[in-house]
Amino acid sequence: MSGDQQPDEREARIESLSAITLATRDMDRAVRFYEALGFRMLYGGVNEAFTSFALGSSGSSYLNLTSETHSPIQFWGRVIIYVSDVDAFYRKALAQGIEPQFAPRDAPWNERYFHLTDPDGHELSFARPL
């Protein structure tokens, strides 16, 4: 796009990095570690498969933990990117020949999201708060 062109307002746009999700073999140990550092838990806990902590004073970024019981850990983590319209971004990925892991869905942690995997195996999640 040249400097004088305006973006199409109907096009789905990337807006910000929302969170990074890290795999753990021991949720209890990991939650206690992050709590000891002063991370504020928003969702999940020591007995859950998924836990989310607020980062920073604005609370608009997150560190998530997900249980991974396979040895060795095959899952490095996940980058979560906020977009202007999850469903439109999903259609954009499909139109480019990129096959997401699943269609957009609403999550109990109040986001609409879908995942896809980049050519090197890194998982990307595209999301928007509900």
Rank of each mutant, 00 (worst) to 15 (best):
S125A: 10
M41D: 00
V79T: 02
V83E: 10
D28W: 06
G45S: 13
T21L: 15
F126C: 04
L124Y: 09
I81N: 05
R78L: 01
F75G: 00
F39R: 06
A103C: 06
R32Q: 13
L22P: 07
A49Y: 05
D118Y: 02
D118W: 04
R13H: 10
R32C: 05
W76S: 12
S67W: 07
A88C: 03
S52Q: 10
S71I: 03
A88G: 09
H122R: 07
S61A: 04
S2M: 09
V79S: 08
A127M: 06
S125D: 02
E99Y: 02
Y34N: 05
S125I: 01
H115R: 14
G97E: 09
F114D: 02
W76V: 01
R105K: 13
I81G: 05
N110V: 00
A95S: 15
E11Q: 10
Q5V: 04
I73R: 14
L130T: 03
R10N: 14
S125F: 01
I80Y: 06
L94A: 06
Y82N: 10
R112I: 01
S67T: 00
A93M: 12
F39M: 09
Y34L: 08
T24K: 13
Q5K: 15
Y90R: 11
R29H: 12
Q101G: 14
Q6W: 13
A127F: 04
R10A: 12
Q96C: 12
L17V: 00
Q74M: 07
I98W: 09
A54F: 05
R112V: 03
V79W: 09
A19S: 13
D8V: 02
S2L: 11
S52R: 15
A30L: 14
P104G: 06
Q74K: 14
A19H: 14
V46G: 03
S58K: 12
N64E: 03
A49P: 00
E68F: 05
